[in-house]
Simulated scan of single mutants.
Amino acid sequence: MTQFFVDADACPVKDEIYRVAARYGLAVFVVSNAWIRTPPDPRISAVVVDAGPDVADDWIAERAGPGDVVITADIPLADRVLKAGADALHPTGRRWTPDNIGGALAGRTIAEHLRGIGEITGGPRPFTAADRSQFLQALDAAVVRARRR
């Protein structure tokens, strides 16, 4: 049975995830370092983990597997869940795959290095309505892929 795992601390599409999960009757795990309000639905679980680097990522990576969908902007977490057989989506709808995750990891490493030497790298672009729409389409497609397995 497909489950959604949400790296929730900075996720802008939680409401969309809840709607898609309700439509398909899927469980959702909303994982964060602090309490986040979730709808009163028995299929939605708010999981609060200890504060610290990668604690939420570790919780998700230890549980996500084939047929599951992980929603995250965290590239190393996406890499981990892909290796475990789960599907991974960025909140903008970009699907992380074995073909594109290596380049994303390399770009992340370069950006970290540049920031470390004082360069201003800019950060992510603003989240748009088009991103939200693209995410909904990608999430529906991920559920269809998972159900075909």
Score class of each variant (00 low, 15 high):
P39G: 01
I110W: 10
K14N: 07
V13K: 05
A130H: 06
D57L: 11
L77M: 08
A146Q: 12
D99N: 03
D7F: 04
R63Y: 09
T2A: 07
W96Q: 03
T92P: 02
F4K: 01
G118V: 14
R132Q: 08
A78M: 08
E62H: 12
R23Q: 12
I36F: 09
G107P: 01
A138K: 02
A78V: 07
V28P: 00
K14I: 11
R63S: 04
P76G: 08
P53I: 14
I17F: 02
T128K: 10
V55L: 11
R149A: 15
I71P: 00
A61N: 08
Q137N: 00
R147Y: 05
L139E: 00
D74H: 04
D57T: 03
D15F: 01
A51W: 01
T109K: 15
F29D: 12
A142Q: 12
I17S: 03
D57N: 04
P98G: 04
A104Q: 14
R23W: 05
L26G: 09
P39Y: 03
D131V: 02
N100Y: 07
F5P: 01
D54A: 14
R80S: 12
P91G: 02
I101P: 10
P98I: 04
T72I: 09
L89F: 05
A46T: 12
P98L: 08
R132C: 00
D74G: 04
A78I: 03
I101F: 06
V144P: 09
I17C: 05
A141S: 13
E119M: 10
Y24N: 07
G118W: 10
E119V: 15
D57K: 00
I36R: 05
Y24T: 03
V143F: 11
I75F: 12
D7W: 02
A142D: 13
P12Q: 07
I75K: 07
L139W: 03
E119I: 13
D41E: 12
L105T: 10
E62N: 13
D15I: 01
D15A: 15
K14A: 13
I110F: 13
G122R: 09
A8W: 03
R23H: 11
V48A: 02
R125Q: 13
G118H: 06
E112C: 02
A34D: 11
A129T: 11
R23T: 08
I44V: 15
H113K: 14
I44R: 02
